[in-house]
Design a protein around this nucleic acid. Structure first.
Length: 630
DNA sequence: AAGTAGTTCAACCGCGCAGAA
DNA sequence: GTTCTGCGCGGTTGAACTACT
């Protein structure tokens, strides 16, 4: 209806006003519209024509069968309108009914054939269409949107009507920019829910999912460009705890939704727990690197911001990503190259290095060459801060919020001296973003993304690392026994993943990449209870050649070589296993305990706190059975 | 002033879920 | 149990707008 009416209005300027009124009335009330139209037409002098039109429209409304005829009529109008057009938009604006620019009318909108053979308009809505839809909803209420076209004569599909109503016409909609409070809430909600725009909208009265989605997407872009983390630390933390609870609930229910959401949203919130905990202890943030539990979000944020985020690569999912990213993002990074080694370097000599080792991965990527020169511990401290620098250095200076999230990045802070030679790769924001945005399996990304010319492959890297570590092996040799090799049972329960994960654990220990996150996790598991550095996770232990050999063997196994990569990257969710978290926390504890150094006294405290809080928040005590839900 | 690039936002599309037939 | 229909959600697209050169 709206269309056939709108055309005459647009095309015949002398009758515009009259037609407009007719149109408006028609939308509001059919009888009134008919009468009003007739009167107006009479007044304007187009009696014959408009009287006929009025009756025609009325009949059409009363008899749906006649609508087809009307459609035909409209088609003619449309073609005619196209021939003329140009100044028609004014009419619509005069309507002032809604915010839409009506100039479009049919010319702009495309159309599609509905089931009944009617052509449904597409494109921007006109004020008249809006009026029709509003009237319809007033009369019939929301829902049954497909009936709108039938009952109102609106040539729009039900989905389009629903969308228009929900996003623009329904009452109580807020228009305009988001308030600071709303922005804050959106951030928090996104930290919890991921890209669940509709759910988020439920928390923002008057706001639509589309608005929120657009806001978020633009926000992401802005922050990426600015090199800022997506989530302010405090928000991130808050959201994490809640998300965890939700996740746990979902797991209990065997509902995969929460998990799926998390993954899909790229909010691998699990790791975030740490941040949540840190929220209360700002100081801790600086040291957060200790926590293997780095939320993907934070990682992403970091990565996005700095493009170098490798440093904070979280042990779990993040780890997977990092591996992929490292290859991809850090063109300069070569596994075989010295770059990869630096990670482990710290372990060679220092217990402290061991402590940091899990985080070492990030270091190699640190864009800031200066950091490398800093002393081990100092590096660590600065590292965490430096991390920030490194992470963000690529783009912009860090701000307060950024620091808070740095913790996740701190991993990289590992002994800088070791990796000094490594040129800090600068991952592309786009790549990071893509990773974040897309649920695509990490494996795929890694493979596809790993374009680094220098990248020689994990095996090579492993071998190289093994060699490098070999020298330092003696120190940690005693620890090798402690290597936390996850058994199949330990590994998350997801079927196909088990093997992969198990292998990953092995590989992880060896692999430069694996060390960072996975190794940390696995390693942490083993009761490193002792505070002594020597007792540090042997795995790291790196040990040496033997460990290497085993790992290598794994790799070499038929399944092996590929699996290592796959495992780590393909199933980030596998990392979510309870074991992982538990290990992570243990590891954190160990680290805290381990760090007796003056430099790290504070750090130690923080680590302990973090571990404690995180454990509580996530209920790490009990294994998370994420995968089972998968 | 014109052209280009970037940003914002409305709308569309495809998919999946739930309920009814 | 299968199919159909309606609906909602999330991702994507493209036009309009703005800023920059």
């Amino acid at each position: 209806m709206s269309h056939h009416l709108s055309f005459p209005i647009h095309r015949r300027s002398r009758f515009r006003s009259g037609v407009l009124f007719v149109w408006a009335f028609f939308g509001l009330s059919e009888p009134i519209a008919v009468v009003g139209a007739s009167l107006i037409v009479l007044g304007l002098g187009g009696f014959g024509l408009y009287c006929g039109l009025a009756f025609f429209f009325l009949l059409v409304r009363l008899d749906s069968a006649k609508r087809r005829l009307l459609f035909s009529f409209r088609s003619e109008q449309m073609s005619h309108a196209k021939a003329n057009d140009s100044d028609d938009g004014m009419l619509d604006q005069s309507d002032g009914m809604l915010d839409q620019s009506d100039s479009s009318s049919f010319d702009e909108g495309s159309s599609k054939v509905a089931g009944g053979g009617t052509v449904l308009k597409k494109g921007p809505w006109t004020a008249t269409e809006d009026a029709i839809l509003i009237d319809y909803v007033k009369k019939h209420g929301e829902g049954n949107w497909n009936a709108v076209q039938k009952h109102s004569g609106l040539f729009r599909c039900g989905k389009s009507c629903r969308l228009r109503w929900a996003n623009h016409l329904r009452p109580n909609l807020k228009k305009g920019a988001f308030t600071a409070e709303e922005e804050r809430l959106i951030i928090e909600l996104h930290a919890k829910m991921g890209n669940k725009w509709a759910r988020m909208a439920a928390h923002l009265p008057g706001r639509t999912d589309n608005e929120i989605k657009n806001y978020w997407n633009t926000r992401i872009k802005r922050r990426q460009r600015a090199g800022l983390p997506l989530y302010p630390p405090d928000v991130h933390l808050q959201g994490l705890s809640e998300s965890q609870q939700n996740q746990n609930i979902g797991e209990l229910n065997c509902g995969d939704t929460s998990h799926h959401d998390l993954l899909q949203a790229n909010d691998f919130d699990i790791p975030d727990v740490v941040f949540d905990n840190l929220k209360d202890s700002p100081g801790a943030l600086c040291y957060s690197p200790v926590m293997p539990n780095v939320s993907v979000n934070s990682m992403l944020n970091q990565s996005l911001g700095s493009s170098q985020s490798f440093s904070f690569m979280p042990p779990t999912i993040n780890h997977v990503k990092r591996l992929g990213e490292s290859e991809t993002l850090a063109p300069g990074f070569s596994v075989s190259g010295s770059n990869s080694l630096p990670l482990f370097g710290p372990f060679r000599n220092d217990s402290s290095a061991k402590i940091h080792r899990p985080f070492a991965l990030s270091v190699p990527y640190d864009p800031d060459p200066d950091i490398k020169k800093s002393p081990p511990y100092g590096a660590v401290m600065t590292g965490s801060l430096a991390l920030l620098n490194g992470n963000f250095s690529a783009s912009k200076p860090l701000n307060g919020p950024v620091k808070t999230e740095l913790p996740s990045l701190q991993y990289p802070v590992t002994d800088i001296s070791n990796w000094g030679t490594c040129p800090p790769p600068t991952p592309s924001l786009e790549a990071v973003d893509a990773y974040i945005q897309s649920p695509v399996s990490p494996t795929v990304q890694m493979q596809s993304e790993s374009f680094s010319p220098r990248n020689s492959g994990l095996l090579e890297a492993l071998l190289h690392e093994a060699q490098t570590l070999g020298s330092s092996r003696n120190r940690s040799s005693g620890n090798t026994s402690n290597l936390p090799v996850l058994t199949d049972t330990q590994v998350v329960d997801s079927s196909p993943l088990n093997l992969c994960e198990v292998e990953w654990e092995y590989s992880d220990q060896i692999s430069p990449l694996g060390h960072s996150a996975a190794s940390t996790l696995s390693e942490s598991t083993p009761p490193i209870s002792s505070s002594s550095l020597d007792e540090l996770p042997p795995s790291k232990a790196l040990p040496g050649s033997e460990a290497k050999v085993e790992t290598v063997e794994h790799v070499s196994t038929p399944d092996g070589g590929d699996k290592i990569m796959r495992l780590d990257f393909s199933r980030p969710d596998a990392l979510l296993g309870a074991d992982f978290f538990a290990q992570s926390y243990e590891y954190a504890k160990d680290l805290a305990a381990f760090i007796g150094d003056d430099y790290f006294s504070d750090y130690k405290q923080m680590a302990a706190e973090t571990t404690y809080s995180s454990t509580q928040g996530w209920g790490l005590d009990e294994p998370m059975e994420h995968d089972c839900c998968l």
